[in-house]
């Protein structure tokens, strides 16, 4: 399976290489430090890692964990406890059609590519998909989305570079309603969460979409780049505060970056993690699977 292959490069599984580290299978400080190191290098962050480790150390102290296998199982459980509640796939409610999805995130995170993948995904399920080229700022961003539109043979609503992104969203919402589309995917220009004028601009896009359909946008997807570190938590906080994010997409998991910051995000914010990106092609995409993700994080490269 493409996902397994891409997400789990190499063959050294956690259990295997930890057992190798300590052939006797006994738990000691070396093993706990090794686990700590793996979480840190996976971008889980100092605070979240300390919390997880404190919990494990407590169990070790109370002699609840007899051997290495029990320790690993306990770690896996506590990681899953954090993520599993956030693994809630996106359901497109046909009654809400056109189901409007607004895609946001910092510069270069993978928004436009994710829209291309989603268009492919929804179209394969027989839905009528329309795209809105809401990045009217970056050079050739409109043409990039149009290329994805051609690739998937779906309609793209666009204006020229420099146009008001809210106007593009408005046009696209109208077209989607009038022409009976099932799903609208609206691209936006990349922006840093610290740029308050640009965050206001997004709020305006959201508001304008709501003017055509009070329920729209039905989903606000925040795209996060797995190769980023602790700043992604700040991105999630501020995009969520500005817009009310309803789903997360974690891209670029096909490299060696683990995207562990989602543990911190999942601990703090109740935002479902919807999809992952594992490459640049339309098919390099999957629904978020918490157990598979946890295994990939713990694996050593």
């Amino acid at each position: 399976k493409r996902l397994r292959e891409k997400l789990n490069r190499g063959d050294s599984w956690l259990t295997y290489d930890l057992a190798n580290l300590l052939p006797g299978g006994r738990i000691d400080e070396t093993v706990l430090e090794e686990l700590e190191m793996r979480l840190i290098t996976a971008d889980v962050g100092v605070e979240t890692t300390e919390k997880i480790l404190a919990d494990l150390r407590g169990k070790v102290a109370r002699q609840e964990l007899g051997d290495l296998d029990a320790l690993i199982a306990a770690l896996r459980t506590s990681l899953l406890d954090i993520l599993q509640p956030r693994a809630r796939p996106l359901k497109i409610d046909a009654d809400l059609a056109p189901f409007a999805i607004l895609v946001v995130g910092v510069n270069g995170a993978g928004k436009t590519t994710t829209i291309g993948k989603l268009a492919h995904h929804f179209k394969a399920q027989g839905m009528k998909v329309i795209l809105a080229a809401g990045d009217t700022f970056r050079a050739a961003a409109v043409e990039q989305l149009q290329a994805w539109g051609r690739r998937n043979d779906v309609t793209v609503i666009a204006q020229s570079t420099g146009a008001d992104p809210a106007a593009v969203a408005f046009d696209a919402m109208q077209a989607a309603q009038a022409r009976g589309f099932d799903v609208l995917l609206a691209d936006t220009a990349g922006r840093l969460h610290t740029q308050s004028n640009l965050m206001d601009e997004l709020r305006k896009v959201k508001r304008v979409m709501g003017r055509i359909d009070a329920g729209a946008p039905h989903e606000i997807l925040l795209v996060l780049d797995a190769s980023q570190g602790q700043n992604a938590l700040q991105q999630a906080r501020l995009f969520n505060a500005a817009l009310g994010v309803t789903g997360i997409v974690l891209t670029k998991l096909d490299g060696t970056a683990k995207g562990g910051i989602v543990f911190a995000i999942a601990s703090e914010l109740d935002i479902p993690i919807r999809y992952i990106g594992i490459g640049e092609a339309a098919e390099d995409f999957a629904e978020f699977d918490a157990p598979a993700f946890v295994d990939a994080v713990l694996k050593k490269d």
Binding site: D43, V106, N107, D225, S227, A232, G255, T256, D301
Partner: peptide
């Protein structure tokens, strides 16, 4: 990217081994 995380070392090492890098540009 200045937002890069722990994996930046792996990327930098591999690019450094493949090419004779002479400098870095830190973005964003």
């Amino acid at each position: 990217d200045s937002m890069a995380g722990q994996d930046a070392v792996n990327a930098a090492r591999a690019f450094g081994e493949a090419l004779s890098l002479t400098g870095v540009v830190l973005t964003k």
